[in-house]
Design a protein around this nucleic acid. Structure first.
Length: 161
DNA sequence: GCCAACGTTGGC
DNA sequence: GCCAACGTTGGC
């Protein structure tokens, strides 16, 4: 099982929205590096749900991958902001996964607070110039973050959901 | 293949 | 709104 971080602007789609709908296709990723990470995701992987472009930015909850990568439908929709006319239908350029809400962090973890945790010195999110909307997180980093956010460690057990 | 121009992200 | 960082585009 692998661990990831997904960025979303809460004004557009926040963790509360994921809780409300339960499950959502993670579409609209149009960066090759982020896309490649999406394609590595497997059902059961856990994701930190990060709120970007808001104040304060930070981690709001945990989601789970419930469907592995498949073609992002929006790339073929001319009306979509994410339309890509150059994407070959026989070999779609962009992928998405489906994610489901697992749990909100009892304590929202702000970016500033994440920066104070010594165990997160290598967290990709905190590196200079980072702009990726999908990135890997180590198991250790994931555990530190969910614990700091007030979730019980047992919640990581596969049979707890 | 180089690289300048431009666009986007996202914290502040 | 500013601006640093970085990806993409396109002329050559």
């Amino acid at each position: 099982m692998n661990f990831w971080l997904l960025k979303s602007e809460p004004e557009t789609f926040g963790f509360a929205d994921l809780v409300r709908v339960g499950r959502e296709p993670w579409n609209g990723v149009r960066n090759y590096q982020a896309r490649n990470f999406l394609r590595q995701m497997q059902v059961g992987d856990l994701c930190l749900f990060y709120h970007s472009a808001t104040s304060p930015a930070g981690i709001a909850g945990v989601a789970r991958v419930v469907r592995a990568a498949y073609p992002d439908n929006l790339q073929f929709d001319p009306a979509s902001l994410y339309h890509d006319a150059a994407s070959p239908p026989e070999a779609p350029r962009w992928s998405m996964v489906d994610v489901a809400a697992v749990a909100a962090l009892p304590r929202f973890l702000t970016l500033a607070e994440l920066r104070t945790l010594p165990e997160l010195g290598n967290l990709r999110l905190l590196q200079r110039g980072n702009r990726l909307s999908v990135m890997p997180v180590s198991q250790e980093e994931f555990q530190v973050i969910v614990a700091a956010g007030g979730l019980e460690p047992e919640f990581l057990n596969a049979d707890s959901f």
